[in-house]
Simulated scan of single mutants.
Amino acid sequence: MSTAREAKEKVVSEFKDKLGRAQSIIFTSYSGLTVEDDTALRRKFKEANAEYKVYKNTLMWRAAQELGYNDLKKYLEGPTSVSFGYDDPVTPAKILVEFLKNNKGLELKAGIVDGKLVGPEEIKALSELPSKEELIAKALGSMKAPINNLVYVLSGTLRSLVIALNAVKEKKEA
């Protein structure tokens, strides 16, 4: 087998692995993106423990077919970049939609979220959801509130009890 073929099979295998591991995958057209913007975008993905890459469309299509994503073919034309969200499905959508607000040259094509093919509007809607960290913080805050209220009530009750005991003590001393 030729080395070129082996290299292509390695890329297909890598892409299949990432498709299988990622909670969300978003395909974009990057034809008008400058090198500086591309570098900044990659940095944002890296900081968020997500990934932004460019693969050959034919190799992405081959991997997608092997995993049963046959409807993806029409989105794999022209310059196509792909982003992967491993820890949180919302992260890539948030990064891309925020980037689109201030930069031209990038266009949402489609995505795969929980194994389902979605369009640009669903990706934008996904970007408006709270991230995993925000949801955890809200859940912890909800659990903490009743405990804080109980402590507040108990401290008020104890304070009242101490005042009452001091009044009884002072009355007996007098």
Rank of each mutant, 00 (worst) to 15 (best):
K138A: 14
K104P: 00
K138N: 11
L154A: 15
I95R: 05
I147K: 11
N102P: 00
L150P: 00
E128S: 11
E121P: 01
D87N: 12
N149M: 13
G115K: 13
Y152V: 11
P120V: 10
G119R: 04
K132A: 01
L108F: 09
G141C: 03
V113P: 07
G141K: 01
L135V: 14
A125T: 11
V118M: 09
V97T: 15
I123F: 08
P130R: 09
A125L: 12
L100R: 12
G115E: 14
E107S: 13
K132G: 00
I147M: 15
L126V: 06
E134N: 05
I112N: 10
T91D: 01
D87E: 15
G111Q: 09
E107T: 15
K144T: 08
V118C: 06
N148T: 15
Y152M: 14
K132R: 15
N148Q: 14
G119W: 10
N103A: 06
V113W: 11
K124E: 14
I123A: 02
K104C: 01
K101C: 05
K124V: 15
S127G: 02
A137G: 10
N103E: 03
F99N: 04
A139P: 01
L126H: 06
G141F: 03
P92K: 03
T91C: 03
A139D: 02
N103Q: 09
V90N: 00
N149L: 15
I112D: 08
G119L: 11
L106G: 01
K138C: 03
V97H: 02
A93P: 07
K94W: 06
P92Y: 08
E121V: 10
G119I: 04
G119H: 07
V90C: 00
P89D: 05
L108G: 04
N148L: 14
I136S: 04
G115Y: 14
V153H: 04
V153T: 09
S127Y: 08
N102Q: 11
V118A: 08
V90F: 01
A125V: 05
S155M: 15
L100V: 05
V151G: 11
I112A: 10
I123K: 06
T91M: 11
G141H: 01
T91R: 01
L154N: 13
E133Y: 04
I136T: 12
L150D: 02
D88V: 06
